[in-house]
Computed example of a mutant assay.
Amino acid sequence: MTRQQLSATGPVPGLAVFPLAGQQGVRAAGEVGLTTRAIWEGVLEEAVREGEDVYYLELSDVTFVDVAGAGALAAAAGQLRDGRRFVVRRPPPALRRTLDLLWPGQSGIEVSTS
């Protein structure tokens, strides 16, 4: 999948997702928004189904996550059984702020800046 697809009105943001080597999780690149939300939600649904205690989301190459994308992450975390969590590595600053503002203390999400 390419990061951007061209349309008649200009570039359309894309989201590429790749498995992490040696860890349960994915590395994403691009943006999470209206045109890529289905991809993002699919990743989160798969993570919930997999049943791992820790699922890593490497987001250092993600430039933007809209509020609906943050909400999808919070909703997926809410579906995890006790003790399971998403470890969100190097998210865009807006995602961290949105989670802190709208879903403070969400037990299924751990945000890591390293």
Results as ranks from 00 to 15, higher is better:
residue 54 V to T: 09
residue 77 A to D: 06
residue 76 A to S: 11
residue 41 E to T: 14
residue 18 F to N: 14
residue 39 I to S: 11
residue 60 S to M: 04
residue 92 P to I: 03
residue 50 E to P: 00
residue 106 Q to Y: 00
residue 95 L to E: 07
residue 1 M to C: 09
residue 33 G to L: 08
residue 58 E to M: 12
residue 1 M to G: 15
residue 14 G to Y: 01
residue 110 E to H: 11
residue 25 G to W: 04
residue 15 L to E: 02
residue 53 D to G: 07
residue 64 F to H: 12
residue 74 A to V: 12
residue 88 V to M: 10
residue 65 V to T: 08
residue 70 A to P: 04
residue 90 R to I: 01
residue 100 D to S: 13
residue 26 V to R: 07
residue 68 A to S: 15
residue 44 L to A: 11
residue 50 E to I: 03
residue 33 G to A: 15
residue 75 A to T: 13
residue 48 V to R: 06
residue 100 D to P: 02
residue 76 A to K: 05
residue 101 L to C: 05
residue 105 G to E: 10
residue 66 D to T: 08
residue 76 A to H: 08
residue 71 G to I: 10
residue 76 A to W: 08
residue 113 T to F: 08
residue 27 R to G: 10
residue 4 Q to S: 07
residue 38 A to P: 00
residue 50 E to N: 10
residue 75 A to M: 11
residue 42 G to Q: 12
residue 25 G to K: 05
residue 2 T to W: 01
residue 59 L to K: 08
residue 108 G to K: 08
residue 23 Q to S: 11
residue 84 R to H: 14
residue 95 L to M: 11
residue 63 T to E: 15
residue 18 F to I: 01
residue 30 G to Q: 03
residue 19 P to H: 01
residue 25 G to E: 04
residue 38 A to F: 01
residue 54 V to E: 15
residue 77 A to P: 06
residue 90 R to M: 10
residue 110 E to G: 00
residue 40 W to V: 09
residue 22 G to N: 04
